[in-house]
Simulated scan of single mutants.
Amino acid sequence: MRQRYCILLCIFSSYFSAAYAQSVVEKPGVKPAQLGGAPLAETRRKAINVLPFQRQLDASKIKKWLEISSQCTMSEFELFLSPLSAQEKELLKVIESKPAPIVNRLKFQNLRHVLKQKALVSLRVEEESAHDQLAHTTPAVENLLYGAFDVVFASVGPPHGSPRYGDVIIRLKDSVRENGWATPFSGMHFMYAIRHKNARKMQDMLAAGKTLPKSPYNPLNLGFDDRLHFSHYVVTEKSWNKALAYQAILVHRNLDDSLASKKVKQRFAEMLSEKNSQKFWSLFIPPRLKNGTPQQDAENVPFGYLEGKFDGQVSSDFFTSIEVPAEKLSEVQSWPEAQPFLHLIHPKPAGQP
């Protein structure tokens, strides 16, 4: 029954014209729930019927849609990847026993504020609380795409998170996933690498207070087709490890006979017998080498990645460790706001960006 539902949803999404769907405007109603994913759910709703539904798209419906969309995506993966090889089946078995690391990276200048409010919060929550402006890195392009200003981000998979987002590592409990959903890349990456649009120019326009072109034929437009496409990447928490395994299978299948590919294949084989969870994920997503050669980059290609998104805020109750630059440890430990968290605060390992 679930497969029939997924197939019908996918057929409806493809059948209706995006241009026609954009031409229908729903009547003004209750202000939409400010939740990440709301623009995607709204787009999928228009994709199955261009007439207004005359019902509020509330938080419970958005959450349920995220689950349905994820189920459809995973069912499609299972269909198109089958039949699986013995190695691929083994990976699915191995990865399910090793919860993917969930890590938030934070700029040091924001840490004291996070400790004070005992939570990581979205840009929207931060603005509404009228606190001092934090150095958020959330692009406005991503907010238009799926409501990024309403979510807190964390990487799913990389053992130490994504260093480009900050020099502080906040590790989260696996149970935090119950409040999240994910996609295999950021919205900015999706716009320029998948949709082939000038995402940086679009972001610069929005940052300057301008609006993006309304015409779907303008290369700087962000609209129905972009959101509909992005919606098919949604994966909810129950499927995160399996989704990462499916990404790895595709990477492995598309390797060639080059020396770099042979080393990647060897790493794939090593993962299947690795018992230690941290070592497993270090093989799955090796650390990026600074100033690495093209050969080294090819050898260290990650098998997968997910960007986790959590609505509103993530309470400090979910923090398991706060790792700061070693030279800043004494300073952090002296803060009044840090006193409740001293048992969690540690120096980052030497050499860890």
Rank of each mutant, 00 (worst) to 15 (best):
L250R: 04
W335V: 12
P28V: 13
L212S: 01
P294M: 06
M205F: 06
D174T: 15
L106S: 09
R105L: 11
K89S: 12
E270P: 02
Q339R: 11
N241P: 02
T183K: 04
K64P: 00
Y192G: 02
A199L: 03
S82G: 07
L220S: 06
F185T: 06
R44Q: 12
K262S: 11
E142M: 10
E78I: 05
V168D: 13
F190Q: 12
I62Q: 03
H131E: 06
V24K: 09
A260L: 05
V141F: 13
M202Y: 02
R4G: 12
A326W: 02
G209Q: 04
I249T: 00
S277Y: 01
A207W: 00
Q133Y: 10
F190Y: 13
Q247D: 04
H113M: 05
S82Q: 14
Q352P: 00
E307Y: 03
F190T: 08
L111R: 00
Y305R: 12
V50S: 10
P99H: 14
E307G: 03
L79R: 13
F303H: 08
I345H: 01
D150P: 08
S239T: 03
I68F: 09
Q54Y: 11
K262M: 12
V30L: 14
V156F: 05
F12R: 15
H232R: 13
L91F: 02
L123P: 02
Q313K: 05
S273Q: 09
Q3V: 10
Q339E: 06
I322Y: 04
A100I: 10
K61P: 01
Q117S: 03
P347F: 13
K31Q: 13
K63S: 10
R253F: 01
P302N: 10
L344I: 06
K173P: 02
K118N: 13
S175W: 03
A154H: 14
K64Y: 05
S23L: 14
S97G: 08
L92P: 02
F310I: 12
F268E: 05
W65Q: 07
P347Y: 13
S215M: 04
S162K: 09
L206N: 01
E142K: 06
A199C: 03
G180K: 06
K238R: 07
E237I: 00
L81T: 00
E307L: 13
R112W: 01
L106V: 14
V324S: 14
A33W: 02
C10K: 14
S186I: 06
E178Y: 12
V251K: 07
S282F: 08
L120M: 09
S277R: 10
A47W: 04
S155H: 07
K46V: 01
P39M: 10
T137D: 15
R171W: 01
N300Y: 07
R267N: 09
C72W: 02
Q278L: 14
G37I: 11
K214V: 07
L172H: 05
P83R: 03
K61C: 02
N198G: 01
C10A: 13
T293D: 04
F318P: 00
R124P: 01
L289C: 14
C6W: 12
S282L: 12
K27E: 15
Q203R: 07
G187K: 04
K328I: 02
Y15G: 10
T137Q: 15
Q295L: 15
C72L: 04
E128I: 03
D204E: 14
L57T: 07
S175D: 13
Q339V: 04
K64R: 11
A100V: 11
